[in-house]
Write a protein that binds this DNA or RNA. Structure first.
Length: 778
DNA sequence: CAGTGAGCGAGCTTCCGCTTGACTT
């Protein structure tokens, strides 16, 4: 008989703890939650105090069977899941499902995975906190009610398979609202004035000062008037101020800040960051990667101080403990940090190395001294104008944590009046102008969300948890509410006025503005669903809804409220409203009537069709059979909300006959997979740079030739003896096709050298599973 | 994979949070 069984949530954690506890203890893991609400029949008995119907999840049956076996063999079972709402519920589900006897079941918690912390926990067991469990049940039941009652309304009123939820719908709302702010943004321009001046220093040398005018001008005329005044002006140093400042390091990483920094500094997507972090965690390199805590263990503080002292000396050390301020944080874990602070780098893939170094630097920097800076501002008088130029500089007096790490920001801000070290000028020194420029600038529109900045936005609202940030972002993209895309910028002109000597030169320059990389854009369906939910389910869409739910959950956890009463107060008004929406509201298609076609006089409108957004020419009416409306899909980047009449009419110019080639017609059109050329029943996609509205027959023929060339190269080898077997060249290199199934060719052999026999070996070979196409979406 | 878009009806879709694999086209 085994003496003790400890159950934790994660296998990696089980492994570590097993080492600390010795042979009287077996440590197993539950792999997170083992049960969930039944999916069919709602899983909640609404009429019976919202009683949840729990079932063991399909993928946890093996885990539960294994745990049952282990519990039968143990004398004492220690439930060591995390000390938060979800962790407490996991412990309770384990006790219930494994039918543990309360007399030999103990609940323990620890926040650090160290021998001391665990032994201490073993000495201070407690019972399961049923109030905390109830808070979790309330959270779970509420999310089920919201998700499983509203989603079917969307199927009826908007489109099948859509979804709504407390977290995802608000995430989409953020993106939709930001997009509308951008669409409505009126970009005004102003004139920013910069100047370069030469100063003669005390030692006889000369030095340049770059400065910016402290005021801006709204119009060209004002800027010009100012430049005129500068023509005959003298420039003097009016004032020099020096001010010491200090800068402190950023807090250690949480899931959210790690995702943001990995996105900004390494260009990782949110899910990529989590996958790599998971690998590092499993390899024992870092602490747990799903956390909202900035707390560091005393061991970490100690070893960080040691390492800093060793690398940079004692004066760079400043031990700091951070307090988590995030809304709704549950602090079951430490911050994300290296397990061994001594290790600056680790072996592994390039991505693992980069992410590890980022974590190491951030953690180390958080334990280092402030940087001390000296900020200098030189003010320059203009003899004929009241405005003043200023030049500012920042000199690092003591680098402190900056030696290791500087946090990035989302905005790129480089001011032309900023430079590091300013020359040692004195007050009243005369400065010789080298050039003064007034440049037209446009006010910045709000920035679109990246995956990581959306996570930041959600976290600030207290919506979602570290374990759900990445999946939520995947969900809203899978539902096609949002797309992550690059968009090219547009060229725009700006004015430049330059004063060189006594002459003002005016020129028109151009720049590319508004280019986007990996940004989140709402789709039409995302906008229509958001509007629908805002109109009819305002409470759920409210940015403060989760926060108010959290307050209730806290009171349940404190034993001040009964969980199903809280749910009951929510449910009745919610459900009554929902019934009303089902009865009264019309089906929403986001329809807009744009006007009428000047040629035919028929009405032009846009709406969401069965296969996505479409434009419609003419109206459908049962008595005019011969005048059926024409349809055309909107193109990527076009929105129902913003498309113009002209753009919509343009869509009906497709498909377009280009001419003949080899006695067959060449037609250009736009299909489900984008613009294409059709010739001899073959479809050839246009490239990114081809415009289907202007593409010529010559270009089409070129594309046809390219396609033929590619096809001739596609077949590496065929076998006369076995016509069903082919070696083909695909997107990912050579592969085998046999009886319509694809097979991988091992990297160790050359595809062109394979014999028929070798090929069949691969087909029948073990460990070389056929690559089957999965139809499942996800 | 690409000439769709009428209308009916059956059966399906869906939430959030905790955790790993099993999948990678």
């Amino acid at each position: 008989m085994q003496e003790n069984l400890v159950i934790v949530e994660s296998p990696a954690k089980a492994k570590t703890i097993g080492k600390f506890l010795g042979k009287d203890f077996v440590v197993a893991s539950s792999m997170g939650h083992i049960r969930d609400l039944e999916k069919k029949d709602f899983g909640i008995d609404i009429k019976n105090k919202y009683r949840p119907k729990y079932i063991v999840s399909e993928d946890k049956k093996k885990v539960v069977a294994e745990l049952k076996k282990l519990t039968r063999e143990a004398r004492i079972v220690w439930l060591a899941s995390d000390e938060d709402r979800e962790g407490e519920a996991i412990a309770w589900h384990l006790q219930d499902e494994l039918k543990l006897n309360p007399e030999n079941t103990k609940r323990i918690v620890f926040h650090e995975i160290t021998k001391d912390a665990i032994l201490n926990a073993i000495h201070h067991p407690r019972a399961i906190d049923i109030n905390l469990v109830d808070a979790q049940q309330a959270r779970r039941v509420l999310d089920r009610i919201v998700g499983f009652e509203i989603s079917p309304v969307l199927w009826k009123k908007v489109k099948p398979s859509l979804s709504a939820g407390r977290v995802q719908s608000v995430a989409v709302r953020l993106i939709v609202e930001r997009e509308r702010e951008i669409l409505n943004f009126n970009s005004t321009s102003y004139f920013r004035v910069t100047g370069q001046f030469l100063a003669r220093l005390a030692d006889g040398t000369t030095a340049e000062i770059r400065a910016e005018l402290s005021s801006r001008f709204d119009t060209e005329n004002e800027a010009l008037a100012f430049m005129e005044k500068c023509k005959n002006s003298e420039f003097h140093v009016a004032d020099i101020t020096q001010k010491p400042t200090r800068r402190s390091p950023a807090q250690p990483f949480t899931t959210s800040t790690l995702q943001q920094e990995a996105s900004r500094k390494l260009g990782f997507s949110v899910s990529q960051t989590m996958t790599v972090a998971q690998k590092l965690y499993e390899a024992g390199r870092i602490t747990y990667m799903r956390t909202d805590s900035v707390h560091l263990s005393s061991l970490a503080l100690h070893t960080a101080a040691q390492k800093i002292s060793e690398l940079h000396g004692e004066k760079y050390v400043k031990t700091r403990q951070y307090k988590t301020k995030t809304k709704g944080a549950q602090e079951a874990h430490e911050a994300i940090r290296p397990t061994y602070m001594q290790e600056e780098t680790i072996p592994g893939t390039a991505q693992e190395k980069k992410l590890y170094e980022l974590i190491w630097k951030r953690t180390i920097a958080s334990q280092m001294a402030d940087a001390l800076l000296e900020k200098t501002v030189i003010t320059i008088d203009i003899s004929n104008a009241k405005e003043k130029f200023t030049a500012s500089g920042e000199v690092i007096v003591f680098d402190g944590f900056l030696k290791v790490y500087l946090e990035s920001t989302d905005e790129e801000s480089v001011s032309p009046g900023g430079q590091l070290l300013l020359p040692a000028v004195r007050v009243k020194d005369q400065l010789k102008p080298q050039g003064i420029q007034a440049t037209e600038k446009y006010a910045q529109r709000p920035a679109r969300y990246t995956e990581a900045s959306l996570v930041k936005g959600l976290e600030e609202l207290g919506i979602g948890r570290p374990s759900t940030y990445a999946p939520t972002i995947t969900t809203i993209q899978n539902r096609e509410y949002v797309v992550k895309e690059d968009r090219p910028g547009k060229e725009r002109n700006y004015l430049l006025l330059e004063l060189n000597g006594k002459e003002i030169v005016r020129s028109v320059k151009s720049e590319i503005a508004g280019a986007e990389k990996a940004k989140l854009f709402p789709t039409d369906i995302g906008m229509v669903v958001t509007d629908f939910l805002n109109d009819h389910f305002n409470q759920i869409m409210d940015y403060h809804f989760t926060a108010s739910v959290e307050r209730d959950l806290d009171e349940i956890a404190e034993g001040k409220k009964i969980w199903y009463e809280v749910i009951d107060r929510f449910y009745h008004p919610f459900h009554a409203n929902l019934d009303n929406v089902l009865k009264s509201s019309e089906k929403t298609r986001g329809e807009r009537i744009l006007g009428s076609d000047p040629v035919s006089g028929r009405q032009v409108s846009v709406k969401i069709g069965r296969f996505g957004p479409i434009a419609q020419l003419g109206e459908s009416s049962p008595d005019k059979e011969e005048e059926k409306p024409q349809f055309a899909s909107l193109r990527p980047g076009q929105l129902l909300e913003t498309i113009t009449l002209e753009e919509a009419i343009e869509l009906f110019r497709m498909p377009r006959e280009l001419g003949n080639y080899e006695n067959k017609s060449v037609v250009v059109g736009i299909g489900r997979f984008g613009p294409y050329v059709r010739h001899n029943n073959q479809f050839i996609s246009l490239t990114r740079n081809d415009d289907p509205y202007t593409v010529t027959i010559d270009r089409a023929i070129e594309l046809i030739a390219l396609k033929r060339e590619k096809e001739s190269k596609a077949v590496i080898r065929i076998f006369a003896e076995e016509p069903e077997l082919k070696i083909l060249n695909g997107r990912w290199g050579p592969y085998l096709v046999y009886k319509k199934e694809n097979y991988k060719i091992p990297k160790t052999v050359k595809a062109e050298d394979l014999s028929l026999e070798e090929c069949l070996n691969i087909v029948n070979g073990e460990g070389n599973k056929s690559i089957k196409r999965k139809k499942a979406r996800k």
